[in-house]
Design a binder for these strands. Structure first.
Length: 562
DNA sequence: GCCGTTTTCGGCCCGACTGTTTTCAGTCG
């Protein structure tokens, strides 16, 4: 749908038609179920917001045939590589069309070559930056290839920029907005908002920061730069009375903001980054909360602002009371150096106690995972004894006997039943045979969950952000199976896992599955990863009561299956 | 192309920056 929209835009189609396809793409991305499944069960896709008869038919065609004829014929006409040009900052559909028609360019490679040649570009009247067209193009092509950064990697960069700005004279407030504030698992750029009386000198100081490698644009209210690290940073300066409105606008998401503005228009109001206006009168702007209340909404937490139902819920006063970091009372997935962790048992327990946890489950790998030095029966028994001794010594934190038990290819567990019976809680995980068909992988996991001892399924999809996709899996069936069996699903808080994702953790919650948010710490510092998991859970509309490790130990034990 | 307790037709969020525009198009967020 996104690709089709791109090609339509390059063709010069009605922009609202183009937008309709982009909206549909957004709906598909946020859908809590796979559309293929809806098609298979004969459901009417046009019930989904933003999908009408035409697009529904196209989706059905893709699901049933694997092809979209309309897309393929457009690609044949224009060249399949043409849409890639849109990824270059500063190149939109109109300029891509000019490049295509004038220079015969229809792929990134061809563009790179054309940028080195003398070309007729300078003579093209329709091409706005024509005086320095070639050098402009070269500098823009160089901006390509910057991927999204995991949230946790953006954090130190964001914090140092905030610190820098706070110390500039005239700066009143600084907040990192954008997808960073919404706590998306990755960020494409950083959006900083400041309030001050006069933005120009501050923006100029910012553009001259030693970490800036390129100034993309620099005006009196906005500066856009690229850091040496490759990250793009946008800084917006607004007066104090507009700070809340600016924060709302720059926090996004785009879809959320558009929906809010549309709602305002329906009420005869206008919302922009300077405030909420009735005719020419500003009726809100300094405080973000007022932007919501003036159009009849309760305050929406940034993590929810994806236009996935939060606006309707805010209107009805039915927003969730989101999980808070302080609600967490224990960690159910922690490694020691007995397998592939770095800390000793005592170190990890000490760190958990320092966090005020009531309990921590020690979950080293089991024997099948050779590479992690997984524990066989003998070594696990030794660890269980050690845990008994620690538990006898101290009363303020309880160690739960556990293991991250390998789920073997046939769905059986990598520990004998008598050993499993000695554990307080069994965490199961898939680490091998990731290439099974989706059906086989799903049945393997369901079979493992059939085992009465298996309580938590760790990192359910196995994805690694930026490097490994979900292994083939019918996640709806896993969620359904977990609900039926009283099995819990983990939200693994490792910043490159965050598995389950926001959309899926919400789907699991909706299906009545309980969630364990777990650090999967392999060193004492990594117990801190819990906060990434909490943020991801909030994006999935998770409340305290949905999460098992917000419970005290006795209630937690009661909730276990056996 | 989608949508509708104003509408089945006529709307569809809104503003900043760039370039060379002498009043605005293209792009971006």
């Amino acid at each position: 749908m996104e690709r089709f929209a791109d090609l339509l835009a390059i063709q010069g189609a009605n922009p609202f038609r183009v937008r309709a396809y982009r909206n549909a793409a957004m709906t598909i991305r946020s859908a809590p179920r796979r559309l293929a499944e809806m098609v298979d069960s004969g459901e009417d896709l046009s019930q989904l917001h933003g999908i009408g008869k035409t697009i529904a038919a196209k989706i059905v065609e893709v699901v049933k045939t694997g092809h979209l004829r309309a897309l393929e014929s457009l690609e044949r006409r224009e060249g399949p590589g043409l849409v890639d040009l849109l990824r270059i900052p500063g190149l939109g559909p109109k300029r891509v069309r000019v490049l295509h028609e004038l220079l015969g360019v229809s792929s990134l490679d061809e563009l790179a070559k054309a940028a080195e040649r003398r070309s007729r570009l300078e003579a093209a009247r329709a091409w706005a930056p024509r005086r320095r067209a070639r050098s402009w193009l070269r500098s823009r092509v160089a901006l390509l290839g910057r991927g999204r950064l995991p949230w946790a990697e953006a954090e130190p960069i964001a914090e140092s920029l905030v610190e820098f700005l706070r110390e500039l004279p005239g700066v009143e407030r600084v907040v990192v907005a954008g997808s960073y504030r919404r706590r998306r698992e990755t960020v494409g750029d950083l959006d900083l908002v400041i309030s001050c009386a006069d933005g120009k000198p501050i923006l100029e100081r910012f553009a001259a920061h030693e970490d800036v490698s390129q100034v993309v644009s620099l005006g009196s209210t906005r500066a856009s730069v690229v850091l040496r690290a490759g990250l793009e940073v946008d800084l917006r300066a607004v007066p104090r009375e507009s700070f809340g409105a600016a924060l709302h606008y720059f926090t996004g998401s785009k879809a959320h903001v558009v929906a809010v503005r549309r709602l305002a228009v329906e009420q005869g109001l206008k919302v922009n980054e300077y405030g909420v206006f009735r005719h020419d009168e500003r009726i809100a702007g300094e405080r973000e909360k007022d932007v919501f209340t003036k159009i009849g909404l309760s305050y929406v937490e940034p993590e929810l602002r994806e236009d996935r139902g939060e606006i309707e819920a805010a209107r009805e006063g039915e927003l969730p009371r989101l999980l808070e970091p302080g609600d967490i009372r224990g960690d159910l997935h922690v490694h020691t150096r007995a397998s592939d962790g770095r800390g000793t048992l005592e170190t990890m327990v000490g760190e958990a106690r320092a966090r005020g946890y009531e309990y921590v489950a020690i979950t080293d790998h089991t024997q099948a995972l050779r590479i992690a030095h997984g524990l066989d029966g003998k070594r696990l028994r030794e660890q269980l004894h050690a845990i008994d001794r620690i538990n006898e010594r101290q009363g303020d934190i309880t160690l739960l006997k556990s293991a991250e038990v390998d789920i073997l290819e046939d769905g059986s567990l990598d520990l004998a039943d008598d050993l499993l019976a000695e554990l307080d809680i069994c965490v199961g995980a898939v680490h091998s045979h990731l290439g099974l068909s989706a059906r086989k992988q799903t049945e393997r996991i369901l079979r493992a969950m059939d085992h009465p001892r298996l309580q938590v399924l760790a990192h359910p999809t196995g994805r690694l952000i930026g490097s490994r996709d979900t292994y083939g899996l019918e996640l709806e069936r896993i969620i359904e199976g977990a609900a039926e069996r009283g099995c819990w699903l983990e939200l693994n808080a490792q910043p490159l896992r965050l598995d389950l994702s926001d959309v899926w953790v919400r789907a699991a919650r909706d299906a009545g599955v309980r969630i364990s948010i777990a650090s999967d710490a392999h060193s004492r510092e990594q117990l801190d990863f819990m906060r990434f998991g909490v943020a991801q859970a909030r994006r999935g509309w998770i409340e305290k009561r949905d999460v098992v490790n917000t419970l005290g130990l006795s209630r937690l034990r009661k909730l276990m299956r056996r």
